[in-house]
């Protein structure tokens, strides 16, 4: 089990954009699973009026995708810590394909992300996987590409999706 303090030695992401609480399984070069506890106390819910409905509290799908990405990030960086992009690298999202949204996630849910590494081409990684709440599938990701780039590189466009 990889806890938040260890995750913060691997990933440069910090509040409010550190969106994985625990990595529960990691097979290097293959796959990882991790948990994200969803709470009404997250910053996306700040300022929700009292008139908001249950639907208004559906966890933003874009944030759920980002959370899934952080499990992918741990899979990639667990053995080469990258806690500061200024001296290390930035993990950049290159592309997404077939991210499907099934069951809305709401405060009180604990999301279990499953990430599998499908391909690696240099510093570009291609992942696939899904996110569950209990037995229900909330999100499926057909393909997601991330690239590790030095921060100094970031005035140039990221590496194109090799697929």
């Amino acid at each position: 089990m990889i806890t938040v303090d260890e995750i913060k030695r691997m990933l440069p992401h910090r509040y409010p954009m550190l969106l994985v609480d625990r990595v529960t399984e990691l097979v290097p070069g293959e796959r990882a699973s991790g948990l994200k506890a969803v709470t009404c106390n997250e910053p996306w819910y700040e300022g929700m009026p009292d008139t908001a409905t249950e639907e208004d509290y559906h966890y933003p799908w874009t944030v759920l995708i980002e959370s899934w990405c952080h499990v992918a990030g741990v899979l990639v960086t667990w053995d080469r810590p990258n806690p500061d992009v200024r001296s290390g690298k930035a993990m950049l999202l290159g592309g997404i394909a077939d991210a499907e949204f099934h069951r809305p996630v709401v405060p009180g849910d604990v999301v279990e992300h499953h990430v599998r590494l499908a391909r690696q081409v240099g510093e570009t990684y291609v992942f696939e996987g899904e996110s569950l709440v209990g037995k229900e599938t909330a999100l499926t990701i057909g393909r997601l590409t991330m690239t590790m780039r030095p921060a100094s590189d970031l005035t140039a466009p990221p590496v194109p999706d090799p697929l």
Binding site: P12, H13, R14, Y15, P16, M17, L18, P43, P60, T62, V63, I65, E66, C69, D84, V85, R86, A90, L92, L93, I96, A151, L154
Partner: peptide, 21 residues
Amino acid sequence: EKVFAGHFPGFAIFPGVCVVE
């Protein structure tokens, strides 16, 4: 934007998912 504080400290870059948002 609230996300910049953590993405990343000392080097603010807008997350791709926020562009999607």
